[in-house]
Every structure is written in C-alpha cells, then in structure tokens.
Write a protein that binds this DNA or RNA. Structure first.
Length: 789
RNA sequence: GGGCCUGUAGCUCAGUUGGUUAGAGCGCACCCCUGAUAAGGGUGAGGUCGAACGUUCAACUCGUUCCAGGCCCA
C-alpha cells in the first residue's frame, strides 16, 4: 500500500486499459478509462470502485452517456464473446470469469479476487443467467406528455386512493419513454418500412399499405411472416422499402384495448364514444406498471383523456402463512377444489365481503368453509324456515297488510332492511364491497336471531289472521330484498332462492335475480328511533342473559324480577316501551329501574378526555387522581342534575361541567348482575312456590315435547296424554293443565296410566302408546302418550 | 439498493381527528334451547396492537430506525 486517498480524490484520474481487444477511435480512447463519480455504487461490498460497461447495464449506460463514453461490445447477441476477445473467444459470457481472472493474474494486474453474493437476473422460464445488452430500439416518447399523464391521473378515482399519488403517481412522474419494439416472431408487427438508408415510413392503415404496394391485402394475414413479404418502392427515390424486423410490445396491445375492441378509428365511432372512457377497471397491484399504465398512456396520447374513471386495485392471494403461492413451493390452492367442496359462492363472498380489496388475501379451504358454515348457513336456514311454513300455509304472497297494521317488530325489521339497503348501496357506490358485505351479514343475523326467533309462534298459529299474514309478508320482503343485495356477491345461491321465492310465486316476476333492478331504500320504512330503541332492548337482554348465566337458573325457570339501570332517559323510555319483549326473552315477571343513588350501586368517576384533555394538558393525571379520591355518589348526583363540580387538582380549583365527566357504575352486590356501557342488569333470584310451579309446568311441557319427538309424531299431530307424578307435579297439573295441553297439542287427557305403554320401542309406525319417566330435583313424573286421530 | 403496501386474539378481520376497560366472527371451553332440529342460542377464556427509541398530560393511532411478508423497479 502506497497511501490512502478518498474516492472523491480519484475522480478524473486516468487508468490503463486492462483489455484492449476491442478497437476504438482516437476520440473514444481519450474518453475511456477515467474515474467517474456515480450514485449507484455503494461501499457496502467491495472497494466502492466498480468497472462499468455502458453496453451491459442501464446504470452503466446512463453514466456512460452522461460522460460521453462509447458503447463497445465484446459480447455478441448470442451471449458469446466475440472472436477478437481472444482469451475467451466464443465462450458464454458467464463462464468467462475464471479465464479473465487468470489472465489478469498472469499479467500481475490482479490485486485480490473474491466472491461476493449479490442479486442477479435469470430467465424466469429457463433459469439461464441474463445479460443486459444495449441495443437500438423503437420508443414512444411518452416523456413529452409526462405532465399530462400526471394531470389526468389526478382525475381518476383510485380505490384505495393512496395509489393515485403513491405507486402510480410516482411511476408517472418518473416516466421514461416506452420501449415499444420487441425482437420476436409473434406479436403485432411494427408498421414501419425502411429502405435501409435511414428513411422510414410508418403505415397507418391497411388502405394506406395497399395504396403503397398496389396490392389487395384484405385476404392476407397481417402477421409475420406474410407481412414481411410486403414491400413497395418509394415513388420518388425508387428504393425498395421493407418492413423493419421488430414487433410491438404486447403490452401495447393491452393498452390499445379501449380502441381496438371497437376497431376504432376505422368504424364504430358511436359505440366507441358511448363506452370511452370506461367507468371501471379492476386488476391487481402489479398492473400499476402493466395494464393500468398502458391504458392510461395510450388514452392520454391518443385522446387526451383518461381510459377509465374508477379503478379498484387489488392485492394478491397468498397462502395461509402470507406467502406467495407457487407451484414449486406446493402451497397452491386449487380453486376447483374449493368449488367442489364448499362452492363458488362462499369463495366469492370471502373475497368481496370478508377481506379488504387492497389487502393481501390469505386463503385456505377452512377460511372459505367458514363463510358457508356461518353467514350463508344462517341465511339459508332463515330461507328454509320461511319456505317450510309458507308451503304448509299456502300463503298468498300477493296479499297486503298496511305498514301501520303490522306489529312493531315487523316495522323494526323493515326499518333495518331499508337502512341496510341504503347503507350497502352507498358502500358499493364507493366501491367498498366489504362494508356492504358486513351490513348484509349483520342484517341476516338480526333477521334470523331476533326477528325469526322472536316471531316463531306467529308462524305456528293455526288460523291465518292479519298478524300471521303480516309476519309472512314481512319475512318474505326481507328475504327477497336481501337476496337481491347479495346477488352480485353470490350469484348462484341467490338465483336458486330467487327462482323459488319470486319467479315461482309471483306472476310477471323476472326470470332471474340478475334481471331484477337494484333494491332501493323505502322512506316509509325508515325509523331510526325504533332501531335505536331495539338496540337498547337487545343490550338489556344481552346483559340479562349474562346475569342469568351467572345465576345458574335455567331459562325455563321464571324469575320474579329484574333490576335495570340505564345511562340516560332515552334508554329508560326504550326499556319501558318494550317491557314485554325484555321480560319474555329473559323469562322474568317484572322489571324495576334502579334509582341512580341506590345503595347497591357504587360510582366511578372519570374525566372525559376528548373534551378536557387539550384544555388541561399536564394537569390531567392530577385531575384523574382527584376524581378517584372524590365522593363518587355526590358527583354522580351533581352530574345527574346538570350541576358543575369543583375539585382540587395540582394546587388549584378546577370546575368541571357534567359533560366533562364520565360516570360509571360498579357491580351491584348480592345480585346476579352484569354491566356494560352504563347499563346494569341484575336478577332477583328468589324463587317463590308460585315461580317454582310455573318452572315445573314448563319442564313438564318440555318433557312431553321430547316424548312426542321420541314417539316419532309429527309436529301437528294431536295426542292423547297421561301425565302423573309426585306431589309438586300434581299441584302443578292442577294449575297448568290447560297450558300444558295447548302447548303439547293434547286433545284428550287420560286420568290414569294406560297399561299398554311400550317404553322406548315406539316409532313412527308404531300404533301403541309411548311411555317415559322423568325427574327433576324432588319431583318425578311419568308420561304416556299416543296419537289421537 | 429504491418506491409503494401490509403486520392487532390460535385463524380471518374492525378499530373515525391521538383520549377512558382495543372489538367482531370463526375456533376452543362451559352452558342453554328442543315447533328453524342433519338446526338455533348464550356465557367465558384468549391480546405487552411486529420490535426499539422518540414526540405528547396521553400512542394501536404521529415520527425515526429495525425485523418479517407482498408488489413493482434496479
């Protein structure tokens, strides 16, 4: 080592040419073998000095062009060294390294040789190492319209929107001229003819070419090789023009789709005007440099217009571990396996409604099956419920029941339906199918688990009154409408439902759900207040279930009373207005509100941070602490009365308005209770003899129903029943005989047990009575029943 | 190497301008219901929000760096 220098000090220095097999002019010789600065060379590996070859790499070429370096070729287009490079003549370029290293060592020019791991391009099909080779090519000078490309892009609605400014916007701002030509056999021939002397003629149409060559070409296949046979002589110079050998980048064909699909500008002008620009295009993220770009570039250049107004940009499907799927990895999911096992509809629903469009989609058969087992199954069962009973009742679905004549729960579900239609349509208008899907799933859940579950008895009733008809019409409208909402997501199942529910039942109905118009919200149905009230009811019921679960009392056992605390007066009114529903859901006799200052409630006071956070800044921790220490009950009382409070924090008095505070209740002691979001529900679990008898009555009904099922009876069969047992059972029977009889379709009571009971032997075809014994706690009873024809 | 995106419960995903105890479905455990029954429902457990540092009274949220995965370039 002679001395250390900075790289910058080397810039401009000349060095001796290592190999001089390729001749160069005197002018060129004066420019080569000089140290140049460049940004693309890193000091991470090696010396920080690299030898560049402008003929073999874009960075090298760019640096070379910036400093006037010549493009000199030592390697031929076949990838082999040229004959003049004698030590490696005819050798594949990638195999020449050892020979060249040996050569340099032999001449004493090699300081050190070592291996460095780095990325290198390989052909994706054959795996052969590639070489970047500077060549002449045809370009479209897109850079001349770069600003217009950016401007027009800013008018496109991108979903997700960050692609417009980000990935796609960056790509346009860094636009380089479009390398148009390809040296292949297949492809659209580049329509340029040349005389080989630097004169070129671009031919714009078949007619133009016919005129030039004086031949009829309509029957000719205008691809290679036939098109290359077409030559013409220049009218003035008399030179023969032949087509250049290149074809056009096939991506140009893709981008020309807007025009080529209508054979514009040669015909179909009206059709083209009608369809251009496109409303919508959907492709994956990799197409920002592909189809999204080629369409945009050509439309900008040809029409000074966007090619599409809206674009949804998806991400790719990956495997369950988030890895790219590839055949060699074996982590591929065959879509046909999903079609065969789970179905195409759940697959579609998963992609449209369960994962965000711009997120990578992890997919496995189990994940798709979840759609079928969950949401779709709920929908199908609700549909099946309707079909089962509607067929039994032969309902006239063309009948009418005015909205105001329908019970509140019907108006509730129709309000929810209308809101769902409105919000799902808004989401889809914004190209957000996931939100639309979530709204639909939520509606189907409410329809099944609240509307149908709470209304089952209306469908069982034997007489077809207005109430029963209203139930049918309401459920029918919900199913038919939500089915239409679901149709674009799940075209097959919705079609089956539609044909059965609509095409078969309604005259003049469209044959297919896909021929229906899109549902519209019905302003007459909208009822935000009823929706809010029902949400409160569901909240209280949910907390009540939690409390009952904690209490250990089964739902069949009625309880005397429940205690409810609500956060505000509106919630109290909602509860009061729907007492029957709440009591029935929870099987409780009475509901009482807990007074706000009742002893069984303790309060926790917290600052309402979004309101006071910015106002008090660093005092917040002190305020928080002061509120913990303060008397919660008195603060709660002040808040309830709308009075401000004053506390000491950080050495000063701080006055807080009721809205600045959050009052939370702690659990009530001595009750089975649950609380959340200002609601508290407690159950009084004291059982009176009356409540116990009623619970037992329900237990008896249940055991008879079970016996009916075991005996193989149909749900509509009338029975002859003997029921007898212990003291409590007899007392209960005295009080609840009519109730039990009507619930179990008993048309004849046997006062004594028949002698012909045959235990569990009875089946659907058995004529004999069916007997069974039951016990619960201290009580026991026996049942014998038979079909009463 | 550069640009863009993603990372929240076992799994798939929500989580508004930073704000109070981070939610849902599935799965799991336990239970209920039995006239939607080869169904239906409830309750519960489960998370140091990829990691570290920083800004702030306060960070899943903002900033920087790093890690992992994806796409496009080089």
């Amino acid at each position: 080592m002679l001395r250390r220098v900075k790289g910058a000090d080397l810039v401009g220095m000349r060095y001796q040419r290592l190999f001089d097999y390729i001749p160069c002019s005197e002018d060129e010789a004066g420019k080569i073998c000089v140290v140049l600065p460049a940004e693309f060379v890193s000091t991470e590996d090696g010396t920080g000095i690299v030898h560049i070859a402008p003929a073999y790499g874009a960075d090298d070429l760019e640096a070379g062009q910036a400093h006037g370096l010549p493009v000199m070729h030592g390697v031929g287009l076949d990838g082999m060294f040229r004959p003049e490079v004698t030590p490696v003549a005819g050798m594949f370029f990638k195999e020449a390294d050892p020979v060249l290293i040996r050569e340099l060592k032999g001449r004493g020019l090699m300081y050190r040789s070592e291996k460095v791991l780095h990325n290198y391009p390989f052909g994706w099909r054959t795996g052969d190492p590639l070489i970047y080779y500077a060549k002449e090519a045809w370009y479209i000078r897109t850079t001349e319209r770069r600003e217009r490309l950016v401007e027009l892009n800013n008018t496109i609605n991108w979903v997700p929107d960050y692609i417009r400014e980000g990935r796609f916007g960056n790509w346009l701002e860094n636009n380089v001229d479009w390398a148009l030509s390809r040296e292949r056999f297949w492809g659209t021939p580049l329509p340029v003819w040349t005389d080989g002397e630097g004169n070129y003629q671009c031919v714009g149409s078949l007619a133009e070419l016919e005129a030039l060559c004086g031949r009829e070409l309509k029957e000719l296949d205008l691809h290679r090789p036939a098109v290359d046979e077409i030559t013409f002589e220049h009218p003035e110079t008399g030179r023969t023009f032949r087509r250049v050998p290149e074809v056009i980048d096939c991506w140009f064909d893709s981008g020309a789709m807007s025009y080529a699909q209508w054979h514009w500008p040669f015909e179909n002008h009206d059709t083209f005007e009608k369809h251009f620009p496109a409303d919508y295009i959907c492709e994956a993220i990799d197409q920002t440099r592909g189809w999204f770009y080629t369409l945009h570039a050509i439309a900008t250049l040809v029409s000074d217009s966007v090619a599409y107004r809206n674009v949804i940009c998806l991400s790719h499907i990956v495997d369950k571990d988030g890895r790219k799927m590839s055949k060699s990895q074996g982590n591929i999911i065959n879509p046909y396996d999903v079609f065969d096992s789970t179905g195409a509809d759940p697959l579609r629903w998963y992609f449209l409604a369960r994962v965000p469009a711009d997120g990578q989609k992890r997919i496995s058969v189990d994940i798709i099956s979840d759609v079928a087992a969950g949401f779709l199954n709920t929908f199908w069962n609700t549909y099946a419920f309707f079909v089962t009973y509607a067929n039994l009742d032969e309902v006239d679905l063309n009948a009418q029941v005015p909205l105001e004549k329908r019970p509140e729960i019907d108006r509730w579900v129709l309000a929810l339906l209308s809101e769902t239609v409105r919000r799902a349509t808004e989401a889809l208008d914004a190209f957000d199918s996931k939100t639309a899907g979530e709204l639909i799933e939520s509606f189907v859940d409410q329809l099944s688990n609240w509307y149908v579950r709470r209304n089952r008895r209306r469908f069982w009733k034997s007489e077809m009154g207005q109430d029963k008809l209203a139930a049918y019409l309401t459920l029918y409208e919900c199913l038919v409408t939500v089915n239409r909402l679901m149709a674009p997501f799940m075209p097959f199942i919705t079609e089956a439902v539609h044909r059965n529910l609509v095409t078969a039942a309604m005259k003049d109905a469209p044959l297919s759900v896909h021929m229906e118009s899109w549902p519209e919200p019905n302003p007459a149905y909208e009822n935000p207040q009823l929706l809010a009230e029902t949400a409160v009811v569901q909240k209280v019921v949910s907390l009540g279930r939690s409390a009952r679960s904690e209490s250990g009392h089964r739902v069949r056992q009625p309880l005397g009373r429940m205690l409810v605390r609500v956060p505000d007066n509106a919630a109290a009114e909602s509860v009061n207005g729907h007492l029957g529903q709440i009591l029935e859901e929870l099987n409780v006799k009475a509901l009482e509100f807990i007074a706000r200052d009742a002893e069984l409630v303790t309060y926790r006071i917290k600052p309402n941070l979004p309101r006071i956070g910015k106002r008090y800044g660093k005092l917040i921790p002190a305020i928080r602490e002061a509120l913990v220490q303060a008397d919660g009950t008195s603060i709660a009382t002040s808040v309830n009365q709308g009075q401000p409070i004053t506390i000491q924090a950080g050495g000063q008095d701080i006055t807080l308005e009721p809205e600045d505070l959050l009052v939370e209740t702690a659990s009530a002691q001595g009750y089975s209770s649950a609380e959340e979001g200002g609601f508290l529900v407690a159950l009084d679990t004291t059982l009176t003899p009356q409540l116990e008898r009623e619970g037992l009555a329900r237990e008896l009904v249940r055991s008879v129903q079970e016996a009916r099922k075991q005996a193989g009876l149909n749900i509509s069969d009338r029975i002859r029943l003997y029921l007898g047992g212990s003291q409590g059972v007899q007392e209960t029977l005295g009080e609840y005989r009519e109730f039990i009889a009507s619930e179990t379709l008993t048309s004849h009571w046997d006062e004594t047990a028949p002698l012909t009971g045959n235990g569990g032997e009875a089946g659907p075809d058995s004529a004999g009575p069916y007997s069974v014994e039951h016990s619960l706690g201290e009580e026991s009873w026996s049942i014998t029943l038979s079909r009463q024809d």
